[in-house]
Amino acid sequence: MDFFPFDDDYVRRLRDGDRSTEDHFYSYFEPILRLKLRGRLPSAEAAEDARQETYARVLKKLRAPGGGEIRDGHAFGKFVLTVCNNIVFETYRGDKHNEPLDDEIIERLASLENSEDELIKEQMRECVRRVISTLETRDRNILEAIFFKETPKATICEEFGVDQGYLRVLLHRAKEKFRKAWAKEQQRRPRDRDETDPPRPSLLPRETVKRQDT
């Protein structure tokens, strides 16, 4: 998954119900929202509910009479995360609005969920797991402790003998090694790849990613 430049045209297409844009909206934000909600709500089910609620509210706000609340299409990504933040805060405060949603939006979301290509996603996940299995034990353990076991940070720090600040460094290094292993895996298997292989993600060595200062 790569950097995507949102703009007014994207927002217009989403507002107009363009199917491919809706598919993109749904799949692009899926990993971002999952990552964002991970550990911030009391259960995986609550996080999943919040993710779905985010999609629904964004579409509802976009399609509200008067053209919705988004003035600047370039800020669409931040807008989605703001909606998600609001839902998390409401959940914390226990005053979730439970805004009524249009049946049409609910049906749209259900159809987007059903149209996800689980096979392609699974191929991607399998690639990720295969590459992780090639990492050194320490890097593998860091990634698994953070992302799979969701071990409390204090426990991870204790296990690895580091403080919380240095845990960022360990995560950064593990990610860099993962990127390099991923790139090597892609180079090693070019002839084995066919149309059933997963799309290449943004997991590139740092030097190949263009930097954009803002």
């Binding site: 950097f3 797991r129 995560l171």
Partner: peptide, 15 residues
């Protein structure tokens, strides 16, 4: 974006 999406991709694969 790449930094965050990479982490999200790894998390999805691992978890």
């Amino acid at each position: 974006t790449a930094d965050v999406l990479d982490a999200a991709t790894i998390a999805d694969g691992v978890r």
